[in-house]
């Protein structure tokens, strides 16, 4: 269907970090402002391959060359233009959880090729390749941690794993962490980034939207807070389920957020897309988000919200 059916967006200068066929779902185009038409950042994973020394990264926003050491100290935010570069799930946990408090949950779940998907490449091979590359079991990392001493159930999606598309494992791990948090009577924070539902698992993927949302309904009924954090990009099936259901919804600056991919909208409607369409700023303006939060203040913002919603 439309919102899940998009091809990968053509990128104006540099190729995307993965070949288009590897994207579970649609990748949004960068915001159409002039700033973002400049050369792209090379993600840390691909950089390791292209620049063996691995000392520098080019900012996707402004083209600035930044040393990796500096970038790490700045939580992967460009010091010149404040562009928020792609972050891994592990990095985000490190930035958000109080030191030494993170305990991973359900790390023993693995995706299987349930449909025996007959495509151009084997789904099983893809899973193995991404697991090797990212060191993750699948596209989400879940567990318990403390955020400025607030015990919290947390799920962080990792766009580097098959465009963080949601299949059975992503849905199951998110559902389990919500259910466990309901039982422990603690809040849930989900950091989303996703191309949408995972095509290779067909309808099993789509049903994860219902599964996760139903678990959130029970968590909400118990009077517990859920904060949804949207990062670049959060689209389609993930956006049309748990990511949109936060008591409070935050987004990182300039993140692409939406349901249908820009290309599908253009092809279906022949409409001119407005400036900044589907950026976090565009959504905030229309009342669809609570706030846009810079990465360096994300932890303290979450902590004060959790304190308020206790």
């Amino acid at each position: 269907m439309a919102e899940m059916s998009t091809e990968t967006q053509p990128t104006p200068v540099a190729p995307p970090p993965m070949p288009p066929s590897d994207q579970g779902m649609n990748l949004p185009t960068p915001p159409p402002s002039k700033v973002f038409d400049k050369p792209k950042e090379v993600s840390s994973r691909t950089r390791k391959k292209s620049i063996p020394e691995g000392l520098w990264t080019r900012c996707k926003g402004c083209g600035e060359m930044i040393t990796n050491k500096e970038l790490e100290d700045l939580l992967k935010v460009c010091p010149k233009c404040h562009y928020h570069l792609v972050a891994t799930a592990k990095e985000r946990v490190q930035w958000l959880a109080d030191t030494g408090t993170f305990e991973e949950a359900d790390s023993n779940l693995h995706s299987v090729d349930a449909l025996k998907f007959k495509g151009v490449a084997s789904y099983s091979d893809k899973l193995k390749a991404y697991a090797r590359e990212t060191g993750l079991q699948d596209a989400v990392l879940t567990g318990f941690c403390e955020i400025e001493a607030h015990p919290t159930g947390i799920a962080v999606m990792d766009f580097g794993f098959l465009a963080a598309s949601m299949g059975s494992v992503v849905g199951e791990r998110i559902t389990r962490i919500i259910e466990k948090s309901t039982k422990k009577k603690i809040p849930v924070v989900i950091i989303s980034a996703s191309g949408g539902a995972r095509m290779y698992e067909g309808m099993l993927s789509l049903m994860q939207m219902a599964k996760t949302s139903a678990a959130l309904a029970r968590h909400a009924k118990a009077g517990l807070p859920f904060i949804s954090v949207l990062t670049n990009p959060t689209m389609a099936g993930v956006m049309a389920s748990f990511a949109s259901l936060g008591d409070v919804i935050l987004a990182e600056p300039h993140s692409m957020i939406g349901f249908a991919g820009a290309r599908v909208i253009r092809e279906t409607t022949r409409e001119e897309l407005p400036k900044g369409f589907q950026t976090a700023e565009f959504l905030l303006e229309r009342g669809l988000l609570d706030m846009i939060v810079h990465r360096k203040t994300m932890k303290s913002t979450l902590a004060s919200l959790l304190e308020f919603m206790k």
Partner: peptide, 17 residues
């Protein structure tokens, strides 16, 4: 669901969720 600018502006993702 309709993939259009107005559908996005009125938050089709949230309506479905």
């Amino acid at each position: 669901a309709y993939p259009g600018v107005q559908a996005e502006e009125r938050h089709i993702a949230e309506a479905i969720a």
